[in-house]
């Protein structure tokens, strides 16, 4: 086990690589999902607030249906 963490003397290089390899994609995923949720909440809030009239005005074909 100790030998495994030692990585043949290259622990100082191998482990940071794996740490970054996990952290960078993880940070990207967290940021992407957070942004998605934020936009979803905003869109829902705006639709609720707007009610009927603006909703009709906002109905362009390309933004229609079950977003």
């Amino acid at each position: 086990m100790v030998e495994f963490f030692h990585m043949g003397g290259y622990a100082a290089y191998v482990w940071p690589v794996y740490a970054l390899g996990l952290l960078v994609p993880l940070a990207l995923a967290v940021q992407s999902l957070a942004d998605y949720r934020r936009q979803l909440r905003l869109a829902e809030a705006l639709e609720r607030e707007a009610g009927g009239r603006v909703r009709r005005a906002a109905h362009k074909p390309d933004t229609e249906q079950g977003l």
């Binding site: 990207l28 999902l33 639709e47 707007a50 005005a57």
Partner: peptide
């Protein structure tokens, strides 16, 4: 993972566009 994140981000962009449209419509109203 790249494809997955790409889809997530594209969905967020579509919503962003929709939010913008709703805001413009609101301002116009």
């Amino acid at each position: 993972l790249f494809v997955t994140l790409l889809l997530v981000r594209m969905r967020a962009e579509i919503l962003r566009h929709r939010v913008r449209m709703l805001r413009l419509a609101q301002a116009a109203a």
